[in-house]
Design a protein around this nucleic acid. Structure first.
Length: 587
RNA sequence: GCGCCCGUAGCUCAACUGGAUAGAGCAACGGCCUUCUAAGCCGUAGGUCGGGGGUUCGAGUCCCUCCGGGCGCGCCA
């Protein structure tokens, strides 16, 4: 199969290298597939790499290498070209052999052992369960899910994980928002704070609480508002007004806790589980599954946060200032030191995040991948710093930043604030453009690249979406195979020597490239390469389909062509399945 | 102001990690359905890779510097 071809070529070049330049015999040999077909099937820049060390013209070196190159039945032509490239043209049989390899291996063609069964954790989405997921989360979800599948396919032992921020102020705000809407239903006149959660789903939860427990949690407005600073004028957006709104909201939360006592936990828990369930359903429908939903709160309950802070303290990485405990992250390259424990004794989000990472390391992952929104990039140095401070290997942690998707509607930016309730939800997007198109649209972008998501385009021109281009190729092949009507197992006996058209050999070369592409994509954490590969493969297929007929009278030729088509179908299926996109048999 | 990311065809994006004449898809223009699915194919047009300098056999890719955009700089999460 093709991998063998590549390593055999490498071996040939190593022999030539050893006699031309024994001193540089360990020069790594890079074989690439030229874009231009006239440059053959493989090319190496070995001569150029040697130019500096040997102080010779690359073209002269290339000629010497060619002279020393052992002959091989695989290679029909080896020649020097350009600035000193050596181009190889392969024997057609060496190229088409891949068809049989694909059909034999099935969905395992391309599967790699590069990951060596090492344990890798991929943590992604991890959105606060305070409202519906929006289109930005969708990008992280699609990327994380595709990346996880890719790594798994490349031989890693993958754990997919969602970090649930179920402790902290944002959850309190959601709970109090729900309660205030509930009071509203019961005619209690408390103005709804502008910095509470405004979405309709909050009212829905209030209704549920009402249905389940009636007026049990009603309290008088005076009691709810007692001791609150009140709200500034609605139009004010100065710092003072903002801070007053936050203080007001905090006071409301405190009053709610006092007035409801143990029942506060019910409201809190109800809001959390409702939103989490909604989020989980949403993601499941999107084809995004998690092995573990990890609770932030559990880090407090098990005492890991406190243990972590103690540990850092014992190692001398903490100091007290203004009543708060600071972590000396500047010792590890951060811009400034960071608080882990507030003046009021409460731990910061950073503290629980340190504990979470300690927990990840204690679970023995060989590699830990965090997929974060790009707005968190300033957070990386402090987390890596904390990991180092705990005497752990910070290089095991890789933070993949996903740039936010900027939505455009009618040519204008659409707002994406969760708090204001004005956002396009992932669910809406899925409903309007479909799961497949969504997953593929996201997959088609390099994750760390800014993404302009034109809603009108995605919604109105779904037929133009490249996902259909690939699915269509798959459906066409299914149709041909149906009409052919033979047993697919028989295709293994096909006389591949019949495949001689340029297009057929080009497709064979592309198929052979699939395993290399998978390994490269996994190494780069870049599933978008799969999407581009598939587009390319589908394009080659469509071109061939229009140029040649598969179901011809000549039985041998027919068998060979159907075998090639079946191999293309297999690779499309494998690739699409990694991307979480379906392959309908007919369209 | 400081730090990180980015700037490639009219639009949205690639470019095998420093390699050959920078590639696709939309949009535009011209062709192809009595034969396996026209959600397709074939062709044409479209570029000083933001500007300038540097490193070397060779730069969209690395270094410097401007210009332009995004994000971050909480005892929030």
């Amino acid at each position: 199969m093709a991998q063998d071809v590549k390593s055999q070529l490498t071996a040939l070049l190593q022999q030539a290298l050893a006699s031309v330049a024994p001193a540089a015999a360990d020069t790594p040999i890079l074989l690439e597939r030229p874009r231009d077909a006239s440059h053959g099937d493989f090319a190496t820049n070995l001569a150029m790499q040697l130019a500096r060390a040997l102080k010779k013209n690359p073209r002269d070196i290339a000629q010497q290498l060619l002279a020393e190159l052992p002959v091989s039945p695989l290679v029909t032509k080896a020649e020097m070209a350009g600035a000193g490239f050596i181009n190889f043209t392969l024997d057609p049989a060496a190229k088409t052999a891949v068809v049989k390899a694909v059909l034999e291996a099935g969905e395992n063609f391309g599967r790699s052992t590069a990951g060596g069964k090492q344990k890798v954790q991929v943590e992604f989405v991890s959105a606060n369960p305070t409202g519906p997921l929006h289109v930005g989360h969708g990008r992280g979800a699609a990327y994380g899910a595709s990346l996880s599948s890719l790594l798994s396919y490349a031989g890693w032992d993958v754990t997919r994980e969602y970090y649930v921020n179920d402790a902290g102020r944002q959850m309190d705000i959601l709970a109090v928002s729900t309660w205030l809407r509930y009071l509203e239903l019961n005619g209690v006149a408390v103005p709804f704070p502008p910095n509470g959660y405004q979405g309709d789903y909050v009212r829905a939860m209030a209704n549920q609480v009402m249905d389940a427990h009636g007026v049990k949690y009603v309290r008088p407005a005076e009691a709810v508002l007692v001791g609150t600073p009140g709200l500034p004028e609605a139009g004010r957006s100065d710092d003072e007004a903002k801070s007053q709104r936050e203080l007001h909201l905090d006071a409301l939360i405190q009053n709610a806790k006092d007035l409801l006592g143990p029942d506060w936990a019910y409201v809190h828990q109800h809001a959390l589980s409702e939103q989490l369930a909604d989020c989980r359903d949403d993601l499941e429908e999107f084809g995004v599954h998690f092995d573990l939903w990890f609770s932030e709160k559990s880090l407090y309950d098990t005492g890991l946060v406190a243990r972590c802070v103690d540990l850092l303290e014992k190692q001398g990485h903490l100091y007290v200032q203004d009543g708060a405990k600071w972590f000396k992250s500047t010792d590890f390259g951060d811009e400034k030191d960071r608080v882990v424990q507030r003046e009021n004794g409460l731990y910061t989000y950073f503290a629980s995040d340190i504990a979470y990472h300690l927990n990840k390391y204690e679970r023995g992952f060989d590699k830990v991948i965090n997929i974060w929104g790009a707005d968190h990039h300033g957070y990386i140095p402090r987390v890596k710093g904390a990991i180092q401070a705990l005497d752990l290997d910070a290089d095991k942690l890789h933070v993949a930043l996903v740039q936010f998707a900027v939505l455009y509607r009618n040519g204008q930016k659409a707002s994406m604030s969760t708090r204001s309730g004005e956002f396009v939800t992932l669910r809406e997007l899925r409903g309007e453009v479909g799961n497949d198109a969504c997953r593929f649209f996201y997959a088609l972008r390099k994750s760390d690249q800014h993404l302009d998501f034109d809603l009108d385009l995605a919604k109105s021109q779904t037929n133009e979406n490249p996902v259909y281009y690939i699915q269509y190729a798959h459906a066409r092949i299914c149709s041909v195979l149906n009409q052919w009507g033979g047993k697919e197992a028989d295709l293994l006996q096909a006389d591949l020597g019949c495949l001689s058209a340029e297009r057929e050999l080009a497709i064979a070369n592309l198929l052979a490239e699939f395993p290399d592409m998978i390994e490269a994509a996994a190494k780069d954490l870049a599933p978008h390469q799969i999407a581009f590969y598939l587009k390319n493969l589908a394009g080659e297929f469509h071109g061939w389909y229009n140029a040649e007929r598969m179901l011809v009278d000549d039985a041998a030729l027919k068998g060979a062509r159907v075998a090639l088509a079946a191999a293309v179908r297999q690779v499309i299926r494998t690739g699409m399945s990694i991307l979480g996109v379906s392959c309908p048999e007919s369209m």
